[in-house]
């Protein structure tokens, strides 16, 4: 039931790296059109959980559904089989991702980065994809950088290109993995304001972040993780003013 209504539904996801449990039996439903911020101390499994959502990390157990459709593994428990590579690639087209270290492709121009997947994965006509790509770039304030190469950009600009690349897929969901952690402090603002704009437009976004004030402003839901478990799921107002768990209280006093 929930997995059909939810944009993202995580059921019983566990992940261990060589016997070390990083995620323990995670259940989470994320409503469509909402922004969810995942907070927690480092090593709590935030990024791993995010990376399980598009199967960049393969959970040891459990399943993930995107708008009701399974990703990575098909069927439940005993009868589960891994998706074929092609199926997985197709499933991933509805989930875009923004990485901590941008992960732009340096041999392609800014516009080339933005249209790469729309043209070669979604098979959109190049001209159409480029027109849309330019429109997206101008939305994030980079219209004049369309033909530049990534190495000429600042960190904040690179991350805005990475966000444009994500938007160009017209995804149902965008995942952000610590989008501002690799940026110089003065560039954090420009990236956060772009994400903030997107949040108002009804995209489903999941953001792993250490920016508390931003999380408070932008999130509809805060997910607090610690020790590979979700300790708290709450609206930001409730979470920041009256956290329920002892661990969250301690975390908040330190940030």
């Amino acid at each position: 039931m929930a997995e059909i209504d939810a944009a993202i539904s995580v059921k019983g996801v566990c992940k261990d790296f060589d016997g070390f449990e990083v995620l323990r039996d995670i259940d989470l439903d994320i409503a469509p059109g909402t922004t969810t911020c995942i907070l927690g101390p480092s090593g709590s499994g935030k990024s791993t959980l995010l990376r399980c959502l598009n199967w960049l990390e393969e959970p040891s157990k459990g399943s993930v559904f995107i708008h009701g459709k399974p990703i990575g593994r098909i069927g439940t428990a005993a009868t589960a089989r891994p998706m074929a590579r092609r199926e997985l690639a197709t499933a991933r087209t509805s989930i875009a991702m923004v990485f901590q270290h941008f992960a732009l492709w340096p041999h392609l121009t800014v516009l080339g980065n933005v249209v790469e997947a729309p043209v070669h994965v979604l098979r959109r006509p190049r001209r159409e994809a480029e027109a849309e790509g330019r429109a997206i770039l101008s939305r994030v304030g980079l219209a004049e950088k369309a033909d530049a190469y990534p190495h000429t950009l600042s960190g904040g600009q690179k991350q805005r290109v990475a966000i444009s690349r994500a938007l160009a897929m017209r995804p149902k969901v965008i995942l952000f993995d610590e989008p501002t952690s690799a940026l110089d402090p003065e560039m954090v603002g420009e990236v956060l304001s772009v994400i903030h704009e997107l949040a108002k437009e009804g995209l489903t976004m999941v953001i792993v972040t250490h920016e508390m004030r931003f999380a408070r402003d932008v999130a509809d839901t805060i997910v607090f993780m610690e020790g590979g478990c979700i300790r708290e799921v709450a609206p930001p107002q409730a979470f920041f003013t009256d956290p329920q768990s002892e661990r969250a209280k301690r975390f908040l006093t330190r940030h």
């Binding site: 092609r86 875009a96 270290h101 992960a103 041999h107 994965v121």
Partner: peptide, 21 residues
Amino acid sequence: RDQREAAAAFGLSERQIFTRI
């Protein structure tokens, strides 16, 4: 690895990751 992961996350096939990236 970052670039390769980004390509996979955007749905490029193994072959495309090699030939295009």
